[in-house]
């Protein structure tokens, strides 16, 4: 990676950390509590940006997988793996913070609402993807099968987003189309959190892509070394 790219990555990381700190201040000291739900509504400020970050991660995984199936390039494969991991991280955040809010707002942790169900489905598909890729040096067949799974998950991403508009459910639709919007004092912390989590996702994604590329190169060099007789059990030892 070039020096400029490394510096850009450091800048993104610094901005993400600074904006996350600013978000926490705005959420707890500036944003008012919600009239009906009280203080627990503040979960929303990290829950929704995590969902955006999840879309970024899973979207990159799907894009990388499609391109890998077309071009069979290690770079696209690295993007797919990184996207699946980062998407899963933020999906786990969504699937844990949401039920904690729901316990107070709905009286129970989970309901088979369309958005919750499609999000869980997405998590399960990408869990299968990561399980397939967990062996480290996945072979061509595992890579292709995993890429197929990520492509299969792509329509589900749209279903997650549009499920609240197309089907009846209990999930709130505050900021999406048809929603009532936020109180003016709630907007700055929300925007700050969205920017912070988006930068955080980009930073983690870029770091993970770089690591995956290094891992791919190290694996290729190890194979070359073995081919040249420089393995563990070579006569030089």
């Amino acid at each position: 990676m070039s020096r400029a790219a490394t510096n850009a990555l450091k800048t993104v990381a610094g901005l993400a950390i600074a904006l996350t700190a600013a978000s926490i201040y705005l959420i707890f000291f500036v944003a008012p509590a919600e009239e009906q739900m009280g203080i627990v509504q503040k979960i929303f400020y990290f829950h929704v940006p995590s969902a955006f970050a999840m879309y970024i991660g899973f979207g990159c995984a799907a894009l990388g997988s499609v391109m890998y199936l077309v071009r069979r390039s290690d770079g696209w494969d690295a993007l797919a793996v990184a996207g699946a991991e980062v998407g899963m991280l933020f999906c786990l955040i969504v699937l844990t913070t949401g039920p904690l809010w729901a316990r107070k707002a709905w009286g129970h942790f989970w309901t088979w609402d369309p958005r919750l169900t499609t999000t869980l489905l997405g998590a399960l598909i990408f869990a299968a993807y990561l399980a397939l890729r967990s062996s480290g040096d996945a072979g061509e067949a595992e890579r292709r099968f995993a890429a197929g799974l990520a492509v299969l998950a792509l329509p589900n991403l749209f279903l997650i987003h549009y499920s609240v508009q197309r089907w009846r459910g209990t999930h709130p639709t505050v900021i999406t189309k048809g929603g009532g919007g936020l109180a003016p004092q709630m907007v700055p912390p929300f925007i700050c959190s969205v920017v912070a989590f988006t930068l955080l996702a980009i930073w983690l994604l870029a770091l993970r892509v770089r690591m995956e590329r290094q891992h791919q190169r190290a694996s290729a060099l190890t194979m070359d070394a073995l081919r040249l007789g420089l393995g563990e059990d070579d006569p030089c030892d």
Binding site: M37, I39, V40, F46, T96, T97, L100, W101
Partner: peptide, 12 residues
Amino acid sequence: GGALLIIAYGIV
């Protein structure tokens, strides 16, 4: 609600 909020942010 406060405990749920703290748990949620802690998990994040």
